[in-house]
């Protein structure tokens, strides 16, 4: 498959910023993304699953160049995004969009819906008349279920519900028919009854519009529904990646297994066993090791070598890799 976007050994370390009066010294540096490499193909949906603090949001922000990395590359159409000149950057902005998690934060409260959604048009399609822009905005809003669009276009974000705002955000992202969209937890703040519709819509948009998606989430179930392939993220590292069906039905990495076992099953017969899954080993549920395999302190298969060295990616099946010494 043709590669749409390629991430090569991407790293991002956060620490106290160096400044005149503060020398960056002993204070702890946090490795939010520690050497991630993967790609997203044309017309493909890849989901990234990780808990809070796993660095998945940082990864998304790096990929659209809202942040600069400590090292590593993101290649779009074969070109490193961080080395792009102005014209290349404009092309990149046109083709790569992002949908943010918080619908209450992602629209400027002072701009009408029309102004927010038409902004990319004002920048990239300056020749369009106001009529043409209004028609395009209306069409996109209606395709996201905001019907009739005229009722919404001239409202301010404050007059819309969270669900409606997220529809607006998605419509905005789709405006220029981008080739690649990163959706960072797009439904986690919406009501349950809305989530299914939004996920269906995004999947349909990708399938019909030929847009590639990177779907970032903490919820492995929706990741499974959305993605062709799946990456499991733990403390800045990809610990398992492969086809969605392989990863969810035959998980290899112990963390992936725990993650899947922890998803509540809507079945009372299995309820008791769900609560009593033995995932002991680690004393705490959120701890992680600072050297070697980051999951070692919580892993019940932990071995000596896990604490000494970071496991590389091992081949565990067809297009299926896991970063665990169990398979080395």
């Amino acid at each position: 498959m043709e590669k749409m976007i390629e991430v090569l050994n991407l790293r991002k370390t956060f620490g106290p910023a160096r400044s005149l009066l503060r020398r960056s010294g002993k204070r702890r540096q946090v490795e939010a993304v520690a050497g991630a490499s993967f790609d997203v193909g044309t017309n493909e949906i890849v989901s990234i699953v990780g808990e809070s603090g796993s660095g998945k949001t940082t990864l998304g922000r790096l990929m659209v160049r809202l942040l600069d990395p400590t090292s590593g590359e993101v290649r779009f159409d074969g070109k490193n995004v961080f080395g792009m000149n102005k014209t290349e950057m404009i092309r990149f902005r046109r083709n790569v969009q992002m949908i943010l998690q918080d619908p209450y934060d992602s629209l400027n409260p002072l701009f009408s819906i029309f102004a927010s959604v038409s902004k990319p048009l004002n920048i990239f399609e300056k020749h369009l008349s106001r009529r043409e822009k209004e028609e395009m905005v209306a069409e996109h809003l209606e395709s996201m279920g905001l019907k009739p669009a005229e009722q919404f276009m001239h409202k301010l974000p404050g007059e819309l519900s969270g669900g409606q705002r997220q529809r607006v955000s998605i419509a905005r992202a789709m405006m220029l028919k981008p080739k690649f969209i990163i959706a960072d937890e797009p439904v986690s703040m919406l009501d349950v009854s809305l989530r299914a519709e939004m996920l269906n819509r995004m999947k349909k948009l990708s399938r019909e519009g030929g847009t590639s998606f990177l779907f970032i989430t903490h919820d492995i179930s929706s990741a499974k529904f959305m993605g062709d392939r799946m990456l499991i993220f733990f403390r800045g590292r990809i610990v398992e990646q492969g086809k969605t069906a392989d990863v969810t039905e035959r998980p290899k990495h112990p963390y992936t297994k725990v993650l899947i076992d922890s998803v509540p099953v809507p079945d009372p017969e299995r309820g008791a066993s769900f609560l009593n899954i033995d995932d002991a080993g680690g004393s705490s549920d959120e701890s992680y090791s600072t050297s070697g395999c980051r999951f070692a302190s919580r892993c019940r298969f932990v071995m000596d070598r896990c604490r000494r060295a970071e496991p590389p990616m091992f081949d565990v099946g067809e297009e299926h890799w896991a970063s665990c010494f169990l398979y080395g």
């Binding site: 519709e197 998803v263 809507p266």
Partner: peptide
């Protein structure tokens, strides 16, 4: 409510929606 949730133990091609608000 029961069928609208994505499942990790099943393959779904489309999620069941509850329309409206």
């Amino acid at each position: 409510l029961m069928s609208t949730i994505p499942r990790v133990d099943e393959r779904q091609s489309e999620l069941v929606e509850i329309h409206g608000s």
